[in-house]
Structures are given as C-alpha cells and as structure tokens.
C-alpha cells in the first residue's frame, strides 16, 4: 500500500468515527471509553510482529512485553465493557414501547 492509500483509509475512518460516535447515546459514554480502549489495543498487531521477528533479541522482548500490556487491555477492556452493558436494563414492564433516549 502506498502512503496515499493509507492516508485515504485514515481520513475516511476519521469521518466514519465522527458520525458513529455522535450517534452514541450519552448514557453509554463510559462503556464507549472502555470499548475504545479495548479496540485501540489492536496495537497488539505491531507487538506480535515484533515478538515473532528474528534479528533483534531486544526488539523481540520489547514486543513480548507489549503483547502482555495490550492483552491486559484487550481482555480487561472488553470484559469490563460487557460487565457494564449487562447492567443497563429497561423498566420491568413487559411490551413497553421503545422510547429511544
């Protein structure tokens, strides 16, 4: 991929992010932070490349350490988000109309 293609993906993703995040209900802003935290740990991809690569032992161990840190975030982030989301319940009124916000 050349730089311009990558830049295009980036710019488009910023726009997608902008519209998607504005549609998030304020009540879920804390889970939003927790889940964005978990997904930004996709940086683990870089850590995995470093730890699987031959050539530099230091680089490899730094990579492994980064894998540990990113894993804390991935598992912790998704789990805590799941825990929070499971708490959001509607009124116990069967067939209540969906009231948006």
């Amino acid at each position: 991929m050349d730089f311009i293609s990558i830049l295009s993906i980036f710019v488009m993703a910023c726009f997608v992010g902008y519209y998607v995040v504005w549609s998030v209900t304020p009540a879920l802003h804390t889970p939003l932070m927790a889940v964005t935290n978990a997904v930004s740990s996709v940086i683990i991809v870089g850590a995995l490349i470093a730890s699987a690569a031959a050539g530099s032992a230091t680089s490899k161990y730094l990579g492994l350490l980064a894998v540990v840190l990113a894993s804390v975030n991935i598992f912790g982030g998704f789990a805590v988000t799941q825990r929070m989301l499971a708490m959001y319940k509607k009124k116990e009124r069967p067939a209540a109309p969906v009231s948006g916000k």
Partner: peptide
Amino acid sequence: MIITGALV
C-alpha cells in the same frame, strides 16, 4: 490499526 486508531 489505522481504522481503529482513527475511530478511537
């Protein structure tokens, strides 16, 4: 990583 980074 780019898509995620931009989203976050």
